[in-house]
Design a protein around this nucleic acid. Sequence first.
DNA 1: CTCCAGTTCAAACGACCGTTTGAACTATGC
DNA 2: GCATAGTTCAAACGGTCGTTTGAACTGGAG
Lengths: 208, 208
Amino acid sequence: METPVESTRERLLNVAEQRFGEGGYEGTSLRAITVAAAANIAAVNYHFGSKEALLRAAVARAMAPVNTERRRRLDQLEAGGLPTPEQLIRAFIEPGLELVLRRGERGAVVARFIGRIAFDPSQRIRELYAAESDPIEKRYLAALQAALPRATPEAVAFGYVNMLGLLALHQSQALSRAPGVTEPEDPGTLAENLIAFLVAAFDRGLRS
Amino acid sequence: METPVESTRERLLNVAEQRFGEGGYEGTSLRAITVAAAANIAAVNYHFGSKEALLRAAVARAMAPVNTERRRRLDQLEAGGLPTPEQLIRAFIEPGLELVLRRGERGAVVARFIGRIAFDPSQRIRELYAAESDPIEKRYLAALQAALPRATPEAVAFGYVNMLGLLALHQSQALSRAPGVTEPEDPGTLAENLIAFLVAAFDRGLRS
DNA sequence: CTCCAGTTCAAACGACCGTTTGAACTATGC
DNA sequence: GCATAGTTCAAACGGTCGTTTGAACTGGAG
């Protein structure tokens, strides 16, 4: 029996992403995770300390590249003068959908995990996600405000949470139940559709 | 000790709405519900049969007036010729936010319950909600398609699920964690903001 | 009063939960 | 070889879960 390329710790994180994304935090047991990861039940508390700490580690790992890419794009945009609303929306949506959906099977798993956790029923879990995406939030909001000078700060914030919510919804694939809707379209197309939808809403749908 | 005006069955439904809306289905135990409802733990299985049947009954009761109002508005609109997109969006959003948020404390509880269940982590639960709102869905989509002749059916369906998701998000109050956002605004204002947001997106943000 | 269907009750069922324990295994440094 | 730190293991901990049981209570009909 050869040693697996992935460490127990990595396998736990991978399976946690998948299972938490499928059944939510409360609906997924550590035993289900450890069995699927071919690990002992005690491995979770050895490597992470608790179920919630495992989730926290998984969220941090999943969000890191998204945050990095968003920061990079924001830097780049602000270096080139005043960004347009579309540029800012694109800089937010694409790292969440594209960067994560483009990398095949695992990308979709990660996206669903993030989308699910972002709007978990438990406020405790939601705050755990929020803490991970908070750093760029203020900066992003300020840029959005500058790009939409006619809209009030409250209106811009309203648009932002709507964008956040719609992204999470599409990431979590929770709307595949819709009528006559064949959601699993090309990730790129989905991103373009969502961006167009949001650009129109930000451009003409916010309180002045 | 006077007999309560509400029956055990009604108290169970009321508390179920509240608790399921707070913690989600998996995160809420029957014991928590029955204690808060001052009922015996066995009362749930006596009156409803199971935890899931209790949820189903609560969803049906909560959705009934919303569905009725949406149907009424759709009837009224279609009787007066071709409705505009804004009229259709209004006919969908307002019964979900207004009709339910206007009736004070309990309305907000019902709204949060519906919003939470609509995007529960478990697909089983989501389907349970979908079954309850399905009846008008096809009819509504057809009207929306007629009002937006330039958009493809796929684009209209895309807009519809976005509308559905944003409504559920605001109903569930899951975005109160946002930055500098003081979400608990007047329900009427929230409805107007959301409608304006969606009208702009439907009008100019869909694939032709 | 008796009867009976409807309802409530305390108690227990087996199953599963997250967590902990202490021994067993593994690999590396001396 | 031996010691040692890191990791994995089976087993069990107390607690909570949804559900079931059978007896006790309730209020009206005959």
